[in-house]
Simulated scan of single mutants.
Amino acid sequence: MMDQIQVKRRAGRPTPEEAEQKRQNLILVALQEFARAGYRAASLRDIAEKAQISSRTLYNHYPDKLALFEACLEYSGRQIRPDVPYLEGDLHTRFVTYAVEMQRQLFAPTSLQIARLIYRECSDFDALRQIARLQFERHQLMPVVDILANEGMASDKCHDYATQFVVMAFGEWQRRLLFGGEPMTEEEMTTHAELVTTIFLNGIF
């Protein structure tokens, strides 16, 4: 009898794959809710309900709204970060590929909504600003640092030069984000990335 009870209990538990799928679904639902309602107005109870989990389960994974928001930005950052080892071609081509891929992902609707949320609410929530800065460093800046380091640039220069390239590469995206405008077309992204890369590389090499 006891063995049967144990089997039933084990059968009711989600597999690791199912648990990971539920966690990922929670993140996707939370991303959409943060983008829709904003950080301040987003409700953890509503997020749990829409993700079809209990509030207790949500809090077991993320003790507060800030922890969940950080997990959302980490997930989003991993999704849009190009895999540097698979960037092929010469240095110019790798920079252009990186810039185009990042712009393509940053212009996605949810990415734009989250970016607007950060711009809008960071002034009121310093913790949000710190999380956004760390995610920027990890997922947008470090791939460029890796490219430069692999090219043989001195380590004490990589971060500063990578910062300058990212500022240049995403300048048009930021302008449209702040002042309005349609997302860039694929042709516009490529033209912009080619121009920025040419200016950048001619200035430092």
Rank of each mutant, 00 (worst) to 15 (best):
Q113F: 07
L66V: 12
L87M: 11
D64E: 14
H61F: 07
Y119N: 12
P82K: 05
V96Q: 01
T97A: 15
Y119W: 14
F125R: 06
E121C: 02
Q79V: 03
F95M: 12
H139A: 04
L68W: 08
M142E: 06
P85G: 07
A127N: 07
R56C: 06
A67M: 11
L87V: 09
F136H: 12
A99R: 00
D83Q: 08
S111A: 13
R138W: 05
D126F: 13
Q130A: 13
T97H: 12
H139C: 07
L91Q: 06
N150T: 08
Y75C: 05
Q130S: 11
L106E: 00
A132Y: 10
C72E: 04
L68T: 09
L128A: 09
E88N: 14
N60W: 09
T57C: 04
M102T: 11
M142N: 03
Q105F: 03
V144S: 02
I131H: 00
E70R: 14
T110W: 00
N150E: 12
L73G: 07
D126Y: 12
T57V: 09
Q103T: 10
T97L: 14
G89I: 10
L91Y: 03
R104E: 03
K65P: 05
D146L: 11
E137A: 05
A71E: 08
H92W: 09
S111K: 01
I147M: 07
F69D: 04
Q113K: 14
D124L: 08
F125L: 08
I114G: 00
N150F: 06
A127I: 05
Y86A: 14
A127F: 05
R133D: 14
L73K: 04
Q103W: 04
M142T: 01
C122D: 14
F125V: 12
